[in-house]
Design a protein around this nucleic acid. Sequence first.
RNA 1: GCGGGUAUGGCGGAAUUGGCAGACGCGCCAGAUUUAGGAUCUGGUAUCUCCGAUGUGCAGGUUCAAGUCCUGUUACCCGCACCA
Length: 802
Amino acid sequence: MADYNFKQVEQKWQKIWEENGTFRAVDGSDKEKFYALVEFPYPSGAGMHVGHIKAYSGLEVVSRKRRLQGYNVLFPIGFDAYGLPTENYAIKTGIHPRKVTDMNIEKFTSQLKRVGFSFDWDRVIDTTDENYYKWTQWIFLKMFEHGLAFRDKTLVNYCPSCKVVLSNEDSQGGKCDICHSDVVQKSKDVWYLRITEYADKLLEGLEEVDYLPNVKQQQINWIGKSRGAFVNFKINEVPEELKIYTTRPDTLFGVTFMVMAPEHPLIDTYKEKIANFAAVEEYRKECAKKTEFERTQLVKDKTGVKLEGFTAKNPVNGKDIPIYISDYVMMGYGTGAIMAVPAHDGRDYDFAKKFGIDIIEVIEGGNIAEEAYTGDGKMVNSDFLNGFDNKKDSIAAMIEHLKKEGIGEEGVQYKMKDWAFNRQRYWGEPIPIVHCPHCGLVPVPYDELPLKLPDVENFEPGQDGESPLAKIDSFVNCKCPKCGGAAKRETDTMPQWAGSSWYFLRYIDPHNDKALADMDKLKYWGPVDWYNGGMEHVTRHMIYSRFWHRFLYDIGAVPFKEPYLKRTAQGLILGPDGVKMSKSRGNVIDPNEVVDVYGADVLRTYVLFMGDYEQAAPWSESSMKGCKRFIDRLWKLQDITVEGDNYSDDLMSAMHKTIKKVSEDIEAMKFNTAIAAVMALLNQIYDKGAITRAELRDLILIVNPFAPHITEEIWEKQNFGGMLNEAAWPSYDEAKCVDATIEIPVQVNGKIRERIHVAPDAEQPEVLERVHALEKIAAECAGKTIVKEIYVKGRIVNIVVK
RNA sequence: GCGGGUAUGGCGGAAUUGGCAGACGCGCCAGAUUUAGGAUCUGGUAUCUCCGAUGUGCAGGUUCAAGUCCUGUUACCCGCACCA
């Protein structure tokens, strides 16, 4: 047999698959469906990364296996093409983002095809295609109609370098997610999506899906639901109440001061009554100047200013307490003001120590002279709560009291905030809203969608962060759809997360021009059975898309509640130096080069063999050569193939065991051990020196999902009949997975002294009888008393002697 | 600080969930083939004081039996972070 020519073979089969539409998903089939989804790529100019290959190879293998098992598989791909890098490239080069995007999509497509992924290429979507974003705009208008899209003037995160307003999610740690420069606070009119209204639904939905535990936990933390109480504190000097939120209302008797966020509006309302207003203003200025970095890094050093001339009354004991402002209280959470219980909160404790404020213990168990005690314990110094010994009961009792006295109520808070939903950028979906001087915000009529993104010459954002669209008079000036008067269009565009929030629905019916997808098709294909992607998308992208989807369900546009039944995440591929791949480090591996030198089958096999799929692992070229050897050895099996319609006796259990192992491991995403099992089988076959046609046929089938090109070629060369992808996944017989005899280690006091061969179903008396007949074991036991004898069937013998 | 995770040969990693630690691959050593290199094939490869003992970050514990379970502890990684 001539050496394996991967270049020729891979091209040959890729062409055949393409011409035959081999991997097309069939609408309206009687077969059971399987919808596998991978996160569609952003088509960047750099082209694909080996990380993409690993991300897609997991469900690629599952999909190919499921097809052989008779499923109707939908395994689609598309492009999430709106975004800043393309726009910035356009600004730099003057090439239109449309052109850049088309070029990049073409590049990605050819790269993906070279790897032989079994995507359904008839269903490719592009979020920047007007037939796609028409429906993105449609969903936005539906949200507007239902009061979920609204406009508000607030402080926003603004990146002075990108000249763009960012969501909290895009500016974590006070750094711009795109350019990593410092984000500043700015007052602006912005669009929001009321995702907070869906917080509970998003939490409840998690109970019915199968996500990795840490994915679920991250989403729960992100939503950040907490239960507690709102309590009103009277301010003594003015007719005003200061409302606070607390998770521990039962510690009210330990409150010795209050703290307001520096931005709290009450401060301005009563500024002429604040005796030290100049000092307050000074402090507020300092806070506004602080970067997020300083705020978080100097956590322990508490700062603040007392509001002179104001005191509050503790509503449970009537004590007068001072009010401070401090930047450790945030305006964006709760009510922007807190009751401080220094004895039982670390931050309040630090503040009280620094400002010399009383610390009153109300929960026993700690040493409040040393530090705040945040554990549970018996209530003290707390009037009617004294004697309660767990927080559940004491909180319930206090809430009861607050309600009865009319000073507070039960409450819930979320860390999640409403989603800032606009960018002052060109390369995004136009927001289909008209600003009419008479009618206010008026939606573009549905029959006028898509509201097309106009052509512009200059993609630079305007000064002060205005969208480039604002400069195009023909776009901006329009008639109000409601009153017909002169009006202006919204010029902001949607954020990059918009298009990806519903793309999995469009794959189901990508060419539909009547609806985002046909209801019958949605019923057949939905929901996504298995979604794999990166860990970095489990909060933002996944929560956003679960929100959109749940909204669409609530208005009857989709027939299922949760979009993704199962979610897994692949680990990163690190550079050969063990560090995350990056252009600046120069440790990036180009998949094209790997395909050139080793072939697509080797690349596919290696990214799955290199380690635990869900764990990060460094790239190693020499390790990949091992996979190259594996592929070549697979080819050479043809040299030792002999006639035979059955498995041979000496490979019987090995064949069945391997089929079982590979079948199970693929479903469990343990691709590395599946490949290892096949390698071990290959070693055994070469030791024996022969393989029957029946064995080769099934071996080729189970390797096919990993290495589809070479296996199709062998299939054809060996005349196994038809195309491999029309054959059935081999089955295994549980009874034949066991060998005729198995080796059992024999331990004396837990140390292995001998080994014997027994039938797998041999019973304990028989085995022990044979064990005692062994010379070495008899010697070990001589003169000692046998305390215990254990035989674990098929595993081990242990004799305990004294 | 909170939440989640990881720790096993020279390296990437296995271990049926309490039952032979180191599967499989890389690397390395030796041999075969080759003018040579590469490729390929065969054998070996945890450590040590090597007929026996030791060994899964560290210290204890449970058990006939622990990488796996329990208690404590250290280091590193990821996510969130002054969230009241």
